[in-house]
Design a protein around this nucleic acid. Structure first.
Lengths: 131, 131
DNA sequence: ACTGTTATTGACAACGATTATCAATAGCGT
DNA sequence: ACGCTATTGATAATCGTTGTCAATAACAGT
Protein backbone atom coordinates (compact mmCIF):
# COMPACT_ATOMS: atom_id res chain seq x y z
CA UNK A 1 0.00 0.00 0.00
CA UNK A 2 1.18 3.48 -0.80
CA UNK A 3 1.67 5.01 2.62
CA UNK A 4 1.02 8.69 2.14
CA UNK A 5 1.79 10.65 5.30
CA UNK A 6 -1.35 12.09 6.88
CA UNK A 7 -2.06 15.83 6.52
CA UNK A 8 -2.45 17.93 9.64
CA UNK A 9 -4.55 21.01 10.17
CA UNK A 10 -2.40 23.90 11.27
CA UNK A 11 -3.05 27.52 12.14
CA UNK A 12 -0.84 28.70 9.31
CA UNK A 13 -2.60 26.67 6.66
CA UNK A 14 -5.89 28.12 7.89
CA UNK A 15 -4.35 31.58 7.83
CA UNK A 16 -3.35 31.14 4.20
CA UNK A 17 -6.77 29.79 3.33
CA UNK A 18 -8.38 32.78 4.99
CA UNK A 19 -6.06 35.38 3.48
CA UNK A 20 -6.65 33.86 0.07
CA UNK A 21 -10.43 34.06 0.46
CA UNK A 22 -10.14 37.73 1.47
CA UNK A 23 -8.07 38.60 -1.57
CA UNK A 24 -9.73 39.92 -4.70
CA UNK A 25 -8.54 38.39 -7.94
CA UNK A 26 -5.31 36.47 -8.23
CA UNK A 27 -2.43 36.88 -5.78
CA UNK A 28 1.10 35.57 -5.74
CA UNK A 29 2.57 33.60 -2.88
CA UNK A 30 4.83 36.51 -2.03
CA UNK A 31 1.98 39.00 -1.90
CA UNK A 32 0.06 36.70 0.38
CA UNK A 33 3.09 36.28 2.60
CA UNK A 34 3.44 40.04 2.89
CA UNK A 35 -0.22 40.48 3.76
CA UNK A 36 0.00 37.84 6.46
CA UNK A 37 3.09 39.42 7.98
CA UNK A 38 1.45 42.84 7.96
CA UNK A 39 -1.43 41.31 9.87
CA UNK A 40 0.98 40.24 12.58
CA UNK A 41 1.56 36.65 11.55
CA UNK A 42 5.05 35.20 11.79
CA UNK A 43 4.39 32.69 9.03
CA UNK A 44 7.36 31.82 6.82
CA UNK A 45 7.50 32.33 3.07
CA UNK A 46 8.21 28.69 2.39
CA UNK A 47 5.15 27.74 4.39
CA UNK A 48 2.96 29.98 2.27
CA UNK A 49 4.29 28.27 -0.85
CA UNK A 50 3.63 24.85 0.65
CA UNK A 51 0.15 25.77 1.82
CA UNK A 52 -0.80 27.16 -1.58
CA UNK A 53 0.49 24.08 -3.35
CA UNK A 54 -1.58 21.92 -1.00
CA UNK A 55 -4.70 24.02 -1.49
CA UNK A 56 -4.31 23.90 -5.26
CA UNK A 57 -3.88 20.14 -5.17
CA UNK A 58 -6.90 19.77 -2.93
CA UNK A 59 -8.99 21.80 -5.37
CA UNK A 60 -9.55 24.62 -2.90
CA UNK A 61 -7.57 27.06 -4.99
CA UNK A 62 -7.10 27.88 -8.65
CA UNK A 63 -3.63 28.51 -9.95
CA UNK A 64 -2.46 30.15 -13.14
CA UNK A 65 0.75 31.57 -14.56
CA UNK A 66 1.01 35.35 -14.38
CA UNK A 67 2.38 37.45 -17.23
CA UNK A 68 5.91 37.44 -15.82
CA UNK A 69 5.94 33.72 -15.18
CA UNK A 70 5.06 33.56 -11.49
CA UNK A 71 2.30 31.38 -10.08
CA UNK A 72 -0.86 33.17 -9.05
CA UNK A 73 -3.57 31.72 -6.83
CA UNK A 74 -7.19 32.38 -6.12
CA UNK A 75 -9.76 30.87 -3.78
CA UNK A 76 -12.07 28.77 -5.84
CA UNK A 77 -15.30 26.90 -5.70
CA UNK A 78 -14.73 23.25 -6.31
CA UNK A 79 -16.32 23.03 -9.74
CA UNK A 80 -14.30 23.42 -12.90
CA UNK A 81 -14.30 26.83 -14.55
CA UNK A 82 -12.13 29.36 -16.34
CA UNK A 83 -11.28 33.03 -16.03
CA UNK A 84 -11.75 36.33 -17.79
CA UNK A 85 -9.04 38.65 -16.53
CA UNK A 86 -8.51 42.37 -16.97
CA UNK A 87 -4.98 43.09 -18.14
CA UNK A 88 -5.00 46.49 -16.45
CA UNK A 89 -6.61 46.18 -13.02
CA UNK A 90 -6.58 42.41 -12.56
CA UNK A 91 -10.35 42.13 -12.18
CA UNK A 92 -11.23 38.47 -12.55
CA UNK A 93 -14.53 36.91 -13.53
CA UNK A 94 -15.22 33.22 -13.38
CA UNK A 95 -16.70 32.02 -16.62
CA UNK A 96 -18.41 28.80 -17.36
CA UNK A 97 -17.54 27.02 -20.54
CA UNK A 98 -19.46 23.86 -21.25
CA UNK A 99 -19.11 24.38 -24.98
CA UNK A 100 -15.37 24.64 -24.73
CA UNK A 101 -14.93 21.83 -22.24
CA UNK A 102 -16.58 19.38 -24.58
CA UNK A 103 -14.76 20.86 -27.57
CA UNK A 104 -11.42 20.32 -25.86
CA UNK A 105 -12.26 16.74 -24.98
CA UNK A 106 -13.47 16.06 -28.52
CA UNK A 107 -10.31 17.45 -30.07
CA UNK A 108 -8.16 15.35 -27.77
CA UNK A 109 -10.15 12.21 -28.47
CA UNK A 110 -10.15 12.85 -32.22
CA UNK A 111 -6.36 12.76 -32.18
CA UNK A 112 -6.13 9.71 -29.96
CA UNK A 113 -5.16 11.61 -26.81
CA UNK A 114 -6.36 10.30 -23.47
CA UNK A 115 -6.81 11.92 -20.04
CA UNK A 116 -7.27 15.35 -21.56
CA UNK A 117 -6.85 18.55 -19.60
CA UNK A 118 -6.59 22.12 -20.75
CA UNK A 119 -5.68 25.66 -19.87
CA UNK A 120 -8.10 28.29 -21.10
CA UNK A 121 -7.97 31.90 -20.02
CA UNK A 122 -9.30 35.03 -21.65
CA UNK A 123 -7.62 38.39 -21.19
CA UNK A 124 -8.92 41.83 -22.06
CA UNK A 125 -9.46 45.32 -20.77
CA UNK A 126 -12.54 45.74 -18.60
CA UNK A 127 -15.09 48.50 -19.05
CA UNK A 128 -13.85 50.45 -16.03
CA UNK A 129 -10.25 50.50 -17.25
CA UNK A 130 -11.41 51.42 -20.72
CA UNK A 131 -12.21 55.02 -19.85
CA UNK B 1 9.21 60.27 -33.95
CA UNK B 2 9.90 57.15 -31.96
CA UNK B 3 13.38 56.25 -33.06
CA UNK B 4 13.54 52.49 -32.67
CA UNK B 5 17.06 51.17 -33.37
CA UNK B 6 17.20 49.14 -36.57
CA UNK B 7 17.42 45.35 -36.35
CA UNK B 8 20.34 43.60 -38.01
CA UNK B 9 20.49 40.16 -39.53
CA UNK B 10 23.13 38.06 -37.84
CA UNK B 11 24.41 34.53 -38.24
CA UNK B 12 23.38 33.63 -34.72
CA UNK B 13 19.82 34.81 -35.14
CA UNK B 14 19.60 32.71 -38.30
CA UNK B 15 21.10 29.78 -36.42
CA UNK B 16 18.41 30.03 -33.76
CA UNK B 17 15.72 30.33 -36.40
CA UNK B 18 17.05 27.24 -38.13
CA UNK B 19 17.50 25.19 -34.98
CA UNK B 20 13.99 26.07 -33.95
CA UNK B 21 12.56 24.94 -37.26
CA UNK B 22 14.41 21.63 -36.96
CA UNK B 23 13.07 20.95 -33.49
CA UNK B 24 9.94 18.88 -33.05
CA UNK B 25 7.43 20.28 -30.63
CA UNK B 26 8.24 22.92 -28.07
CA UNK B 27 11.77 23.58 -26.86
CA UNK B 28 13.18 25.74 -24.13
CA UNK B 29 15.85 28.37 -24.71
CA UNK B 30 18.34 26.26 -22.77
CA UNK B 31 17.65 23.15 -24.82
CA UNK B 32 18.11 25.13 -27.99
CA UNK B 33 21.35 26.59 -26.69
CA UNK B 34 22.63 23.11 -25.92
CA UNK B 35 21.72 21.83 -29.38
CA UNK B 36 23.50 24.74 -31.04
CA UNK B 37 26.64 24.23 -28.96
CA UNK B 38 26.63 20.52 -29.76
CA UNK B 39 26.51 21.45 -33.44
CA UNK B 40 29.69 23.43 -33.00
CA UNK B 41 28.26 26.90 -32.55
CA UNK B 42 29.79 29.21 -29.97
CA UNK B 43 26.57 31.12 -29.49
CA UNK B 44 25.89 32.47 -26.02
CA UNK B 45 22.93 31.56 -23.88
CA UNK B 46 21.81 35.17 -23.52
CA UNK B 47 21.82 35.51 -27.30
CA UNK B 48 19.49 32.54 -27.64
CA UNK B 49 17.10 34.14 -25.18
CA UNK B 50 17.24 37.43 -27.06
CA UNK B 51 16.78 35.81 -30.45
CA UNK B 52 13.79 33.80 -29.27
CA UNK B 53 12.17 36.88 -27.77
CA UNK B 54 12.67 38.69 -31.09
CA UNK B 55 11.25 35.80 -33.10
CA UNK B 56 8.24 35.56 -30.83
CA UNK B 57 7.61 39.28 -31.13
CA UNK B 58 7.98 39.12 -34.90
CA UNK B 59 5.39 36.36 -35.05
CA UNK B 60 7.87 33.79 -36.32
CA UNK B 61 7.63 31.71 -33.17
CA UNK B 62 4.96 30.60 -30.75
CA UNK B 63 5.67 30.78 -27.06
CA UNK B 64 3.92 29.13 -24.18
CA UNK B 65 4.56 28.44 -20.51
CA UNK B 66 5.72 24.90 -19.78
CA UNK B 67 4.45 22.87 -16.83
CA UNK B 68 7.31 24.00 -14.59
CA UNK B 69 6.95 27.65 -15.50
CA UNK B 70 9.66 28.04 -18.15
CA UNK B 71 9.06 29.58 -21.56
CA UNK B 72 8.86 27.16 -24.46
CA UNK B 73 9.12 28.10 -28.12
CA UNK B 74 8.15 26.58 -31.42
CA UNK B 75 8.51 27.63 -35.03
CA UNK B 76 5.14 28.75 -36.22
CA UNK B 77 3.19 29.66 -39.27
CA UNK B 78 1.93 33.19 -39.01
CA UNK B 79 -1.76 32.38 -38.60
CA UNK B 80 -3.34 32.07 -35.20
CA UNK B 81 -3.76 28.59 -33.79
CA UNK B 82 -3.54 26.51 -30.62
CA UNK B 83 -1.86 23.33 -29.50
CA UNK B 84 -2.59 19.79 -28.43
CA UNK B 85 0.39 18.56 -26.47
CA UNK B 86 1.34 15.12 -25.18
CA UNK B 87 2.27 15.30 -21.51
CA UNK B 88 4.63 12.34 -21.85
CA UNK B 89 6.61 12.70 -25.09
CA UNK B 90 5.93 16.33 -25.92
CA UNK B 91 4.38 15.58 -29.31
CA UNK B 92 2.62 18.72 -30.42
CA UNK B 93 -0.21 19.11 -32.90
CA UNK B 94 -1.47 22.42 -34.16
CA UNK B 95 -5.21 22.63 -33.85
CA UNK B 96 -7.55 25.07 -35.39
CA UNK B 97 -10.26 26.49 -33.26
CA UNK B 98 -12.68 28.81 -34.99
CA UNK B 99 -15.47 27.81 -32.63
CA UNK B 100 -13.41 28.68 -29.60
CA UNK B 101 -11.93 31.85 -31.01
CA UNK B 102 -15.35 33.33 -31.54
CA UNK B 103 -16.56 31.99 -28.20
CA UNK B 104 -13.70 33.72 -26.40
CA UNK B 105 -14.41 37.01 -28.15
CA UNK B 106 -18.11 36.71 -27.38
CA UNK B 107 -17.50 36.06 -23.71
CA UNK B 108 -15.15 39.03 -23.47
CA UNK B 109 -17.61 41.32 -25.26
CA UNK B 110 -20.53 40.11 -23.15
CA UNK B 111 -18.72 41.26 -20.04
CA UNK B 112 -17.63 44.58 -21.51
CA UNK B 113 -14.02 43.59 -22.06
CA UNK B 114 -12.18 45.01 -25.07
CA UNK B 115 -9.09 43.93 -27.01
CA UNK B 116 -9.57 40.30 -26.05
CA UNK B 117 -6.82 37.72 -26.25
CA UNK B 118 -6.64 34.22 -24.86
CA UNK B 119 -4.46 31.28 -24.02
CA UNK B 120 -5.91 27.91 -24.96
CA UNK B 121 -3.91 24.70 -24.83
CA UNK B 122 -5.01 21.11 -24.54
CA UNK B 123 -2.85 18.50 -22.85
CA UNK B 124 -3.21 14.74 -22.88
CA UNK B 125 -1.42 11.47 -23.43
CA UNK B 126 -0.96 10.54 -27.06
CA UNK B 127 -1.77 7.12 -28.49
CA UNK B 128 1.88 6.12 -28.75
CA UNK B 129 2.61 6.92 -25.12
CA UNK B 130 -0.56 5.21 -24.03
CA UNK B 131 0.78 1.70 -24.57
C1' DA C 1 36.43 47.71 -50.88
C1' DC C 2 37.42 50.92 -46.73
C1' DT C 3 35.63 53.17 -42.75
C1' DG C 4 32.92 54.73 -39.00
C1' DT C 5 28.85 54.16 -36.42
C1' DT C 6 26.35 51.41 -33.46
C1' DA C 7 23.38 47.14 -32.95
C1' DT C 8 24.68 42.80 -31.45
C1' DT C 9 27.36 39.37 -29.24
C1' DG C 10 29.07 36.37 -25.39
C1' DA C 11 30.89 35.64 -20.72
C1' DC C 12 29.52 36.47 -16.44
C1' DA C 13 27.14 38.69 -12.64
C1' DA C 14 22.80 39.74 -10.77
C1' DC C 15 18.05 38.99 -10.09
C1' DG C 16 13.43 37.08 -8.73
C1' DA C 17 10.65 33.17 -7.93
C1' DT C 18 10.63 28.81 -6.06
C1' DT C 19 12.42 24.66 -3.63
C1' DA C 20 15.57 22.00 -0.47
C1' DT C 21 17.68 21.66 4.12
C1' DC C 22 17.30 20.93 8.88
C1' DA C 23 16.79 21.75 13.73
C1' DA C 24 12.87 23.14 16.48
C1' DT C 25 7.95 23.05 17.09
C1' DA C 26 3.36 21.45 17.52
C1' DG C 27 -0.77 18.09 15.82
C1' DC C 28 -2.99 14.14 16.80
C1' DG C 29 -3.68 9.25 18.21
C1' DT C 30 -2.86 6.67 22.31
C1' DA D 1 0.07 13.93 29.36
C1' DC D 2 3.26 11.29 26.06
C1' DG D 3 5.46 10.19 22.01
C1' DC D 4 5.78 10.03 17.21
C1' DT D 5 6.32 12.55 13.22
C1' DA D 6 4.26 16.01 9.99
C1' DT D 7 4.93 20.72 9.82
C1' DT D 8 7.14 24.99 10.55
C1' DG D 9 10.39 28.95 9.67
C1' DA D 10 15.06 30.79 8.71
C1' DT D 11 18.30 30.29 5.46
C1' DA D 12 20.87 28.46 1.66
C1' DA D 13 20.62 26.63 -2.72
C1' DT D 14 18.61 26.15 -7.30
C1' DC D 15 16.53 27.35 -11.63
C1' DG D 16 15.26 30.21 -15.45
C1' DT D 17 15.93 34.56 -17.07
C1' DT D 18 17.67 39.33 -17.64
C1' DG D 19 21.27 43.07 -17.02
C1' DT D 20 26.16 44.64 -17.73
C1' DC D 21 29.82 45.80 -20.57
C1' DA D 22 33.88 45.45 -23.42
C1' DA D 23 34.66 43.38 -27.85
C1' DT D 24 32.80 42.29 -32.32
C1' DA D 25 30.60 42.62 -36.68
C1' DA D 26 26.43 44.62 -39.81
C1' DC D 27 25.17 48.05 -42.53
C1' DA D 28 25.33 52.84 -44.76
C1' DG D 29 28.02 56.09 -46.91
C1' DT D 30 31.92 57.06 -49.39
Amino acid sequence: MTNVPAKRNTRQKDAVRHALSEATGFVSAQQLHLVLRNHGSTIGLATVYRALADLAEAGEADSLQGASGESLYRACTTDHHHHLICRVCGLTLEIEAHRVETWADEVAAAHGFSSPSHTIDIFGVCAACRS
